[in-house]
Design a protein around this nucleic acid. Sequence first.
DNA 1: AGTTGAACCCGGACGC
DNA 2: TGCGTCCGGGTTCAAC
Length: 269
Amino acid sequence: MPELPEMETYKTLLNQKVGGKTLTGVSINREKSINVSPADFVNIVQNERIEVIERRAKHLLFHLKNGHVLLVHLMLGGRMFYGTEQEKPDRTVQIQLSFGNQHLYFIGLRLGYLHLFSEAEVKQELTDLGPEPLDANFTLDSFLDLVKNRRGKIKTTLVNQEFLSGIGNCYSDEIAWHAQLLPKRKMNELNDNEKVQLYQSIRFILQQAIQYGGYMDQPFFKGDTKTGTYDNKKYVYGRAGEACKRCGTSIVKEEISSRKTFYCKGCQT
DNA sequence: AGTTGAACCCGGACGC
DNA sequence: TGCGTCCGGGTTCAAC
């Protein structure tokens, strides 16, 4: 499931591919994926130019010239592909946005969606999100302040979108491993050094994952070599039974707060 | 404030 | 090849 680094990668590539382009066609194959009637959706979106694509947490915002915004959340299993009819993967397409003979395909949307809002409405939709962990304003001091009243586990706190936005199941494990902390440790039981380390690991892991194009291994377009190269860089997530890259101990998989969690018993404490 | 559990959704993996 | 069954998992919401 795409998290911050995956959406950041999509954002960069989308701006290159469709930023400034005009939507020539819209095809809605699954009405549940949108929040207005298909007719209204087409009326507002068709022949409109996409000015810029922005990311907020795990969402993407397609800003249209007419002031409307397409708010995308891929949730689980959702993905996008850009290319011609021939290049598109052999998968069910829920929504298709066309730019001449090139199309942006939304695939695997189940709980994921493409909602149409005004600028004011979209702002309202995103009000409950916590800070962006990679924002320049998100300093060590602001992190320590944020953590002050937290008593939950590292794992559940990191994936809480109201605490920090954009971190999901995969990167919370990667961050805890990098910080050498057990995911089930309580926030309020961390000492100052551990809190500082956690902050630094959040920034490091997310930045590194973006640099490697995230871990979604399906290409965004034909010939895409950027997307998904973090997949074989992963330290713990999905590596149960494999050797820890730091100490060699076998990585374990355990359910923590009803979430699949991976960590190393050898070097995380 | 934290935790748990259910509901949402359906493509695709799996079993026979 | 085909049919039935069940899983995954971010988010929301209710209950404790």
